[in-house]
Simulated scan of single mutants.
Amino acid sequence: MQIIEALAEVSDRYHALFVDLWGCVHDGVRALPGAVEALTAYRAGGGRVILVTNSPRTRAGVAAQIAQFGVPDTAYDDIATSGDSARVAMFGGVVGERVWHLGQSHDAAFFEPPAILDHPARIERVPLEAAEGIVCTGPFDPMADPETLRPEFEAALGRGLKLLCANPDIVVDRGEIREWCAGALAALYAEMGGESLYFGKPHPPIYDLARRRLAKVETVADAEILAIGDGPGTDAAGAMGEDLDLLFISGGLAATDTGTGPDGRPDPTRLARFLDAEGITPTYTIGRLR
């Protein structure tokens, strides 16, 4: 594993990048300038960039969100979202047609039928007691302990409901504030004995979607794709599962554990200890994408 200082040190070995968003390109509040500059320069040199995110939002919703954060469309070619991958499955009827929505109102677009399906299921949001399945786009309150939903989950378990998880992330950092994500709720439901269905990283469906997005602009072999991300159980596990080279961002979720300081450099000893403990074998590591 090689610790690098800048993407440009290795980017000429790849024709495309699969890049995580939160913690790599933005912090949930604003764009990270170094990352935007690096991706824009990579594309200017002929490289392709597909943003691969566990956001439960649609591609259009994510594009609008990151534009507000200051991420220009010159920094990427297309976006593959966990939300789009999960939405196709939901409208395919994997958890039934009457669903209990566990999430916030800003995820309403998740329930709009995707254009790629000719005959989508007629999804109706109903109270839990009338539901055939659960669709989880995130907590009602991202600051609340997932355990607060145990009573509802016990009721759902008693009826054998499946849970569709639109975002496998456990936590994210919005600026300096850590929030719970849908993945934490899906993990609790599975721990309690329920069946949780995943479509984002590290699971194959979102990578299939990312490859389809990439194929629309250029045909690129897997050996020429570099995955970039900061999530050990999502970005790293997904890249390793897909046999893609990985650039691990140590200054995101793992900043404290890897000793990545304000200068953007990880402590080699702490980094090695962290990677070993997590079972991660990245091709490269960088403190922050730049």
Rank of each mutant, 00 (worst) to 15 (best):
S11I: 14
D12C: 10
Y14M: 04
A16V: 11
L17C: 14
C24V: 15
C24E: 06
C24A: 14
V29R: 14
V29P: 02
G34Y: 08
V36G: 06
E37N: 04
V49I: 12
S55L: 04
A63N: 13
A64I: 02
G70W: 05
D73H: 14
D78N: 02
I79V: 15
G83L: 05
G83A: 08
S85D: 08
V94A: 09
R98P: 02
V99Y: 04
A108M: 14
H119F: 03
A130F: 04
A131Y: 00
E132Q: 15
I134H: 02
G138F: 06
P139N: 05
P139L: 01
F140Q: 08
D141R: 11
M143C: 02
R159N: 10
K162T: 01
L163D: 06
C165Q: 08
C165M: 13
D169W: 07
D173M: 02
E179P: 02
C181K: 05
L185I: 13
L197S: 01
P202L: 02
R212T: 09
R213A: 14
K216N: 09
I228R: 11
D230R: 12
P232V: 11
L244P: 06
G252K: 00
G252L: 09
P262Q: 09
D267T: 11
R270I: 10
R270G: 03
F274G: 08
G279K: 06
I280R: 03
I286Y: 04
